[in-house]
Structure formats: structure tokens, C-alpha cells
Design a protein around this nucleic acid. Sequence first.
DNA 1: CCCTGTCATACCTGGTGGGTATCACCGGGC
DNA 2: GCCCGGTGATACCCACCAGGTATGACAGGG
Lengths: 287, 287
Amino acid sequence: MDTLETRELRYFMAVAEELHFGRAAERLGMAQPPLSRAIQQLERRLGVSLLERNRRGVSLTDAGEVLLHEGRAALDATTAAARRTQRAGGAQMSGGPRKRLVLAVKAGASHELLHKLLDAYAAEPDAVDIEVLPSGTCDQEGMLRDGRADVALMHAPFNSLAGFDSEELMTEGQIAVLPAGHRLAAQRALSLTDISDIPDLPLARWSRRGTYPPGPGPEIHDQTQLAQLIALGRTVAVFPDSARAWLWAEHTAVPLTDAPPVVTHIAWPAHSRSLALAGLIRTATRL
Amino acid sequence: MDTLETRELRYFMAVAEELHFGRAAERLGMAQPPLSRAIQQLERRLGVSLLERNRRGVSLTDAGEVLLHEGRAALDATTAAARRTQRAGGAQMSGGPRKRLVLAVKAGASHELLHKLLDAYAAEPDAVDIEVLPSGTCDQEGMLRDGRADVALMHAPFNSLAGFDSEELMTEGQIAVLPAGHRLAAQRALSLTDISDIPDLPLARWSRRGTYPPGPGPEIHDQTQLAQLIALGRTVAVFPDSARAWLWAEHTAVPLTDAPPVVTHIAWPAHSRSLALAGLIRTATRL
DNA sequence: CCCTGTCATACCTGGTGGGTATCACCGGGC
DNA sequence: GCCCGGTGATACCCACCAGGTATGACAGGG
């Protein structure tokens, strides 16, 4: 059969990610035996073995690998359905905000564009409330996928637009943000190689899903933290032009000649049919 | 809570589509009272009213409308996960086909391209079996979405590529297919207006999701049927150039000067990670 | 050799999904 | 006006199964 209950998917995802029944069960807030049994039943129903039970641990079969990816998408779509439904209906009963759109943005990025967009949209006759949801972790894709957001500002090439509809809004170059007193801060322009190997100024390393790329630079997970470390002369970082908006007095921005341009898009789930969303997109493309 | 069991989604979709608890229950193979109760529980859990129970029938609230669309996507993603997992795992146990990719195509379209693609791919060293799944109903989108297919040939502007990754393969003009003896069959070229209002040759009307657009022409749901009606001098139809491959002796093809070009794409789910699929796409783009 | 950590098995229990019977309500016919 | 047909909701019951606890089987390491 091709049923496949949400609960079973949740269970399998937990096991597939932990590769350990005990820890997975703990994460799910249940005991280990029923979890084992549920996975066995799932395997029997699908007629496919998903996990290789080696002594000492568990590993995924090819089919398990497929279910891990496809199941993630399915679970995201399911929770998105629940979230968006609640948002659509919450309005009509509580006297709260009539209708809301949740717009995911990268915290601190494209301030000016965002401001213009929100102002222009608010002036539209049929505008609804826009809730801006800033994400420090650059996870606008996930937010669209699991329904935490209805629409997002994304930045190629950092975000992938795969699976979404999108419109291009703005293209900008990138800058190196240096301590004001540093010798390179006096330059007119720099290249990526100029700043990638400065012994006294190692490039900052952003956290990606909790892990950091290797290198000598400080580990960063927060823009303010980074701004401070730059101001203290400890590191250097690369940002889109629009980051000039939040620079401190102790910072100096120098254009990068060979950094890839950053393209800001407005993106939304491909199947979306919301009129409010269509209005926001229309406004955005007219900016 | 943001749970939302697959079963509940299935139930809601049935009611939302039928707008009738009794018929929905019948379609689901269950009795009406438990279905009513399940929907009530769903509404309470989400804290949102989904259906307006008017005396004499049911209608959707705004939130219900949203759940109808989002839920369809979620259910499709779920059954896609099940189907693709079974395909990935079916190979390893039964001695059957090692690994399969299912390629959805519009029945009868792009014969030559398809042939070249399959031949070229079969010559690749790491080729897997390709199962060609022809669809008479032009529903390649749905096939990709619910996992019946892994990859599809789609034809803009007839199919929407929204939500998929795709690569352009071929662009072609369109032709009018006329009865060989008709006076217009002698022309070198025609425009859409030339053929849209011929009293003795009304344009054929294709079925779209079971309904037909209004007009005087015959109702068509099958290519052979259409071919026969043209050969009999009863109707005229518009096709991409590549349709010349299956024309009969009694048919005459005349190029259309102002018909939009047809672009054939190869398309696949945006999140797909299959190596076999990547190989097929690479072959296709090299054609 | 036993101890430890793993997942599987055995068995029991409570919650709940589903069935049947019935109600409440309304609109339409005569 | 009355009754009838058709709607969804309610009441009640039962059986199934998700989940818990206790325990087993099995391998690797001291």
C-alpha cells in the first residue's frame, strides 16, 4: 500500500537521523520497543528494508536514504499545510490581525530594499499585515518549505531557489568589511585573494547547521558578534553592498572586484494561490 | 499542535472535494458518522473552522480553501515518498530490474527526441533501466508530484514547470493538421485566425480534467480519435512540429506563423538527489 | 568470563478509530 | 399544515493497536 502515516514518517526520520533507536525514541518522547516495532511494521508495509541493523548501530539502506530525503519533504509539506491553515483561519475568529503574510528575510540583509517594499506595499489598497520574520541562520528555504513563512527574500548564490517560484529584485556587488585602522582599509578596491590570507586578520567562519568550516578565523553565529570582532581588529568579513547600512564607525568597507554578485529574489512556494501574496509580489517587481 | 495525520488529511480532502459527508465517506470506504467526528476533531486541534455547515450541504471557509491546496501538496509528497522508496528498495531484493527511473511523457509527443534520449542514455556506462510512462492526459506534473514518475518531458506553455527543476531541450513551431483535401491544405503557411473560424472545420476541443471548453468542435480525449476525425474532414487541430511523425496520408500539415513556440523541457523534483537521474539529465542536455 | 550496550520479543493496557442506531433540522411536496 | 426524504450530528459500543514494562538475544570489550 502507499499509505504512510505522518507518525510513521516522524518515527523513521528520527531513527534515520540519530542512527540509534534508543536516542531516537528519547527524542520522540517514547520508549524504544514501540519505536522498533513501528519501524518494522513500516518496512513490512512498504515491502522494503530501510535500515541495516548491524551489531553496534544502525545504517541506512539505499531505500532508507531515499525515504530520508523524500520524507523530509513530505513532513515539511504536512506541517506547512497545518501552519498555513491556522494562519488563514486564525484571523476570522479572534479579532486579531485580519490576514497575515509572513515574510522571511535574512537578518540584517537588504534593509533598504525591505523598507521600500514594506512601505510600497502598505500603500496598496488591498494590503494585508506583513509579519517580518528575520532569520539569523539563513534558513529562508526551510521556512518556506515547512510553512513558517509564506514568502521570503533570498539571496543567490547563498540560497537555492530550487522548488520555488521567484522574481529577481536587485543585484549588488560585495564588499570587504575591515577594521577602520587596518592597512588594507586604505585601498580603493580589493580582490578575494587579497583578504583570504592575511595572517593578522583571518576570515570569519559562519556556522552552517551547527558546524563550522575549518580555518583559523573566529567562529561566528551572530551578526553583532561579528561586527564587534571586526571593530576590535580581530577578523574581516565579506558582505553584499547593502550591508553598508549597518556598519559601525570602526568599520571600513572596501569593494571587492572579483566576488560574485549577490542577487536578491522574492520567492514563494510554487503552488501558492494566495491573492495577498500575489499583491505583494506585484508590488515588489514594480520597485 | 502542528501534527496533522495523513489519515486526517485524506478525510478532509475527500469532504472538501465532495462537499458532502455522505459521498465523501462512501469514497473513503467508511461510514459517515466517524468521518464527521474526525473532521470535527481536526478542526478543534487546528483551532480553525474548515467547513461551513449550511443546511443542505457544506462549503469551504477560507482556511478550508487553504488546507485543500496545501493538503493536496502534502498528500502528494507523502505518497511520492512511499512510491519512490519502494522503487529504490524493490530492486535490492527481487532479482528484478536493478534500479529504475520512471520517465513520464505526453503520449505521442516528441517521439524522435525521446528515442534519441533513450538511445543515448542506454549507451552510458552507468545507465539504469528507464521505464517510459506515457500519459494521455498531459498530467506529467501530477506524476512527478505524487511519485508515479521520477522525471518527465514537459511542454511549455502547456505544462507548468513551477516547483520543478528543469532544463530546456528543444524548441519547435506549431502546425495546423488539416484534411489533405481541404482548400486551406494548399497554403504555404497559416495564422491562428485563419483556422479558428472555419465554418466547415471547427477546431477540436481537448478534454481538460474531464470537462471540455465550449465551442462547436468535436470533443476529443484521444489522439487516434482526433487523427481519424481530421482524416474524415470533420475537424482541424494544432500540434507541435514533431507531430508530423505520426501523420496519416490523409493529413496535411501547414506551418502556423503566429502560434507560440513549444519548448520541450526535461523536468524533475527540485529536491531530487538521485545519481541515476543526474546521469539522465546530463545525457539529455548534451543531445 | 562477565558486563555493557544494542535492538528484538513478549505481554498487557488504555485510548481511540470505526461501526450501528438514532436524533435534530430543514426544505419540499400534497 | 403535515409528513417525508435527505442532511450532518450525537450516543453508544467494540475491537484493534499504539504505547508501556520487563526481558531476551547477541556481540564487543575489559
